[in-house]
């Protein structure tokens, strides 16, 4: 190991990101999930800042600030408000029990690492080895999304997926061009607000946020 310290910190943060992704997978309460999501955003922003600083890529500062503002402050706040307003914070039993989910999660991590290995070896950036972790976080968030039956955990899963992608972008390529990043951030923001409206509609119509009610449309 002859990496400089800040890159070791990035690696450490990558590990933390993955750890949080696993914690999310095993988290039963919505409020806990939101808190974890905020922490994930923090780790993401921190790693982005370190990459920005160590490689003098100034546009990464903007995306770090964007992450911090959106994913650590605005969105968690909005979700907490939603949870309070909709009064939906109860223990949620996921559709597959948690140990099984975790086992699938491990399998996904191995898969992601394998997939990323040949690419990571090619990457010119110094933070390349984190690509596998980013991919793993994406897959874990995806797993969380499909194993939860409530609306808000699904959306948090979606956003956690976005976090993983963002991390992939910073770690493998030092971030996408700023225009694209801004566009992505805008889309995410709009998505969250559209969903906020949407939650109220779901709540009004079904009187619950449990998506198990939403299983009428299927092939007979």
């Amino acid at each position: 190991m002859s990496l400089t310290y800040h890159l070791q910190v990035v690696n450490l943060l990558a590990a933390v990101l993955l750890l949080i992704a696993f914690a999310m997978l095993s988290q039963r309460r919505i409020v806990g999930l939101i808190t974890l999501f905020a922490w994930q955003g923090t780790a993401l922003a921190a790693s982005t800042i370190i990459v920005a600083w160590s490689t003098a890529q100034h546009h990464l500062y903007y995306s770090a600030a964007l992450t911090l503002a959106l994913k650590v402050v605005v969105m968690p706040w909005y979700f907490f408000r939603l949870v309070r307003k909709l009064d939906v914070d109860r223990d949620v039993e996921p559709m597959i029990n948690i140990p099984t989910t975790m086992l699938i999660g491990i399998a996904l991590v191995i898969f992601a690492f394998n997939l990323a290995l040949p690419i990571a070896q090619m990457a010119g950036t110094v933070t390349r080895s984190t690509l596998g972790i980013a991919l793993a976080s994406v897959l874990l968030a995806f797993l969380m999304m499909i194993t939860r039956s409530k609306a808000i955990p699904q959306v948090i899963g979606f956003l956690a997926m976005e976090n993983g992608l963002f991390f992939a972008a910073t770690s493998a390529t030092y971030g996408m061009p700023l225009v694209v990043e801004l566009g992505v951030a805008l889309d995410v923001l709009v998505a969250v607000f559209v969903l906020g409206i949407f939650f109220f509609h779901i709540r009004e119509t079904f009187d619950s946020m449990d998506l198990k009610h939403m299983e009428r449309l299927r092939e007979k």
């Binding site: 609306a151 949407f198 509609h201 779901i202 119509t205 079904f206 009610h213 939403m214 009428r216 449309l217």
Partner: peptide, 11 residues
């Protein structure tokens, strides 16, 4: 805003 429409939109 029917249940079916909401479900479709969610999906």
């Amino acid at each position: 805003r029917t249940p079916a429409a909401l479900e479709a939109a969610w999906k």
